[in-house]
Each structure stands twice: as C-alpha cells, then as structure tokens.
C-alpha cells in the first residue's frame, strides 16, 4: 500500500459538487427520513458555495438526487426567474450539466422555496423544499434538545394550546405560512413556510417530498401516499388563504395562490404566484400550443 492508494486524481470540483462521502451521508439520512415520515433527521450539512439560509439544505438534497438525466426546476416564491432561484439553477447546471426547465410538467426534480407548484405533481417527481427552521415547536420551545424530547414523547400539547389561544384571542387561527401538520399520525412537522394553500398538496400525494434545513442540519421527508394533517380543532375547519376568487391581472388565471401588488390608487392587483403557470396561461390565450397539467385546485377548491 502506498500514499497514492489514499488519494485520488485531482479534480477542481466533484460531479454534483458534493464529494462522494458527503453524498453517502445524505443518502443514508434520506433513507431514514423516508422510513420515519415527518421526523427530523440530523445530518452534518456540508458548506456549499451559497450562504446558509439561502437554500443550502435543499441544495444538498438536490445535489444528492441529481442524475445525468435529471430535469431540474427551481423556484423561489413560486417564480423560476426570481434571483435566488436563478442562482441555484445556474449552480446546478454548472456542477452537473442537468437539464433546466421552468415547466412543472417537464421537471423530474423541483427545488422550491416557500411554494408547491399549482399543477399536480406526479409519482415520478421529487419535490425538495428549502426549510429555514425545521422545528415546529420552536415558538413554544426554543431549546432544540428539549424540543427533540417533546417529539420523542409525541408531546404536542403546547402547540395545540397556542392555536387554541389564537382562536380565543382573534376568533381564528392566526398561523400564516408554515402551518404545522401531523405526518403519518405520529410526528408534527413544519411543511416549511409554504402558504396554507399548499399544505393539502402534501397529503396523500403521488410525489415524494424532501424538506431540508442546511443551517439547522435537519432533513425530513413525506413519502407518497402519506397522511399530512394540519393541526385543527374538529369544530374549526382548516382554512387556506382566501384566494379562490382572485383573478390574475396578467394571465386571467383564477383559483390559484396570488401575489398581491399594491397599486398607486390605493387598491391591489393580483398575479399568479406560480409564475410559469402564468406564462403558460398567457401563451395559451395567445393561441400557442401549451399544456397545462391537472391542477390541485379546481374552481378554487382543493381536489383530493
């Protein structure tokens, strides 16, 4: 045995950026995440060439999943050309030559910050959600060791109490995005700061979802056909954002999650948050051949 058996040919960068041992650790943790849906699995979380908090957790999962035939879509706030989405997509193709797309239907792998696309995801697709804070118990317990024990004991009483207090104080549950949900009847997870509109899309879905927090070094998964139930009281139904009747002023789309754009006159205009769906709707209106896939919401209602 010589020193050279310890080393390898020099390369400025590995294919898919992460070195082989980083990928193996990710694989091991991703398998465990699938085996215990919604349970936060700790991982080492290597530094990647982006600042922590900018999607480094999602990026490590995506880099591990990348194949030579992957077609990747990256969105931030629903938009493909949002600056950080563009930066991540450019990085992915720089380190792997993965094909890029803006079209949800064409993608095999979708990395997203804060949104789930409006077109239904299929069984061959993987959604990777970037997670800033993986701990749904943080508002009631900032100490991670204690929160971990609470998950172990399925001790979610204080979380329920917070929701109940909101009901009493404000007449409704005030949780905006990142609505906590019980996964597979056992672990409460934060679905990442997606709007309430998007949480039902994870419930008994056909696709596989990974959620990964690089800074906090935790990843978890929602396999296909897994129960994801937002925490609600039996007499107070879960309420998504009141967007069902809004109309996108650009594309004419209706019944999708909207961005509100304040107007000079004092009112608001709305545009579809899923930007490429908006583009497809405009193209279709212009008479171009465009395929819009089946949607999660029809007529403003979620269709299971």
């Amino acid at each position: 045995m010589t020193l050279s058996t310890l080393t390898r040919p020099w390369a400025a960068i590995s294919w898919g950026f992460l070195d082989a041992s980083a990928k193996r650790e990710m694989r091991r943790k991703m398998i465990k995440a699938i085996a215990v849906p919604g349970c936060q699995m700790p991982y080492a979380s290597r530094e990647v060439p982006m600042a922590r908090g900018w999607g480094t957790g999602g990026l490590q999962v995506t880099l591990t999943l990348l194949r030579t035939d992957s077609v990747v879509k990256v969105i931030d706030q629903g938009a493909d050309d949002s600056v950080n989405a563009a930066s991540i997509r450019r990085f992915l193709s720089r380190v792997s030559a993965a094909a890029e797309t803006w079209d949800t239907l064409e993608a095999t792998l979708i990395q997203s910050r804060h949104r789930v696309p409006e077109e239904r995801l299929r069984e061959d697709q993987v959604l990777v959600l970037q997670v800033p804070n993986p701990e749904p118990l943080r508002p009631v317990q900032p100490n991670m060791s204690i929160a971990r024990q609470m998950h172990a004991d399925a001790d979610y009483g204080r979380l329920w109490l917070v929701l109940y207090e909101q009901m009493v104080r404000s007449g409704r549950i005030m949780q905006g995005a990142a609505y906590p949900a019980l996964v597979n009847g056992r672990h409460v997870m934060t679905p990442s700061p997606i709007p309430r509109w998007d949480v039902p899309k994870l419930h008994m879905a056909r696709h596989l979802t990974f959620l990964s927090a690089g800074r906090e070094k935790r990843l978890y998964a929602v396999p296909p056909f897994t129960r994801v139930e937002p925490l609600v009281f039996s007499d107070v139904p879960y309420k998504v954002e009141d967007h069902a009747d809004l109309v996108c002023h650009r594309s004419g789309l209706r019944g999708v999650f909207m961005n509100e754009i304040p107007q000079d006159g004092g009112g608001s205009a709305f545009e579809a948050s899923d930007s490429h769906l908006g583009i497809k709707a405009i193209r279709r209106a212009e008479g171009a051949a465009t395929t819009i896939g089946p949607m999660w919401y029809e007529e403003g209602r979620f269709r299971p």
Binding site: S14, G16, A20, K23, I31, T64, L65, L66, R67, V95
Partner: peptide, 19 residues
Amino acid sequence: LPHPTPDDLRDTDAFEALM
C-alpha cells in the same frame, strides 16, 4: 464542467432504486 465517474453513475442508480 465536472463529469460523473463510473462510480458516481453506479452509486446514483443504486440510490435511486433504494430510495
């Protein structure tokens, strides 16, 4: 642009199957 090694390809395929 980095290229995948044969090991990279085998490992990715194996993991895809396992996942």
